[in-house]
């Protein structure tokens, strides 16, 4: 990949100061995997600090759309083509001078299957911080504080404070997934993308994670893909319904579930397909 000029952190800060209402603004986005078109002129606006759920049957393009926001689709190379505009905090993220490393620092992602790195709990939390730390100086006190803050924020501190040096892969799935959220926090992301974050968890762990997602929103904008209707209903403020690569309907969660405007949405929510 050719070297691109780095979008300075200060421009992002400036955007924060202006306090735009929208965290993510997706306009007219189409996306192709080779000859296969996965997204058709999709629009989606996500308000800052809100939780928006993306629902729809398998293969409808939810995850593709999610991965377009941190440009994760691009790792597949030229095979993936994206048109349209995606803005995060008013910055055009599809522009050539966007540094992916900076974009991903501000737009974190949580995966379907918890994927803590095969390092200690502490090193997992500090991973992103260490990558983005400008000076190479190692400050134990600062790092300890970062670890504690991040783990407290995801309600994990009390459970793991005595075993920070242990392998993260030895934690329970619920703890692992919380850790995967915690490791995003030290670099102060704006948006957290979640791709079916509870589908590998049991009901109790799912409830705990949903609680955490509620707890985090406001400070972070959360866009969450889910197959679980009840979860979308419980743990989101807005819901967007996609079908066959198109955005069918987007609105306040209650409205989508109680009075959907489109027939396709109603059919899906009532379980007629999916």
């Amino acid at each position: 990949m050719k070297q691109k000029t780095i979008a300075p952190w200060t421009t992002w800060k400036a955007a924060l100061v202006e306090d735009t209402a929208l965290a993510i603004d997706i306009q007219n986005v189409s996306l192709w995997y080779g000859d296969f078109q996965a997204l058709f002129e999709v629009d989606l606006q996500v308000k800052r600090g809100s939780i928006t759920a993306l629902i729809g049957p398998s293969g409808c393009g939810k995850s593709t759309l999610l991965r377009a926001v941190n440009r994760m689709n691009e790792r597949l190379g030229d095979y993936v083509r994206t048109t349209g505009e995606i803005h995060v905090l008013d910055q055009d993220i599809l522009s050539d001078d966007v540094e992916l490393s900076q974009l991903r620092r501000h737009v974190g992602m949580v995966f379907q299957r918890p994927n803590p790195l095969p390092l200690s709990i502490q090193d997992n939390v500090l991973f992103a911080h260490r990558i983005h730390r400008a000076d190479e100086k190692f400050n134990k006190l600062e790092e300890d504080e970062i670890v504690e803050n991040a783990l407290r924020r995801v309600l994990l501190w009390d459970e793991v404070k005595d075993r920070l040096g242990r392998e993260a892969t030895g934690l329970s799935l619920e703890e692992q997934q919380k850790l995967c959220i915690a490791r995003l926090l030290p670099v102060k992301p704006t948006v957290i993308l979640m791709d079916e974050p509870t589908s590998a968890l049991d009901p109790k762990a799912t409830a705990a994670l949903e609680e955490l997602i509620w707890e985090l929103h406001g400070d972070y904008t959360i866009l969450i893909v889910t197959h679980n209707m009840a979860q979308a209903r419980r743990a989101s403020e807005e819901t967007a319904f996609m079908l066959l690569g198109r955005m069918v309907e987007h609105g306040v969660t209650e409205q989508i579930f109680l009075a959907p405007q489109e027939e396709g949405t109603a059919d899906y929510i009532e379980g007629r397909y999916g």
Binding site: N70, R75, R104, R105, N115, P116, F127, A128, R183, V187
Partner: peptide, 8 residues
């Protein structure tokens, strides 16, 4: 993927 998503 986890690493790349943190900007590594």
């Amino acid at each position: 993927e986890a690493c790349w998503n943190m900007g590594a």
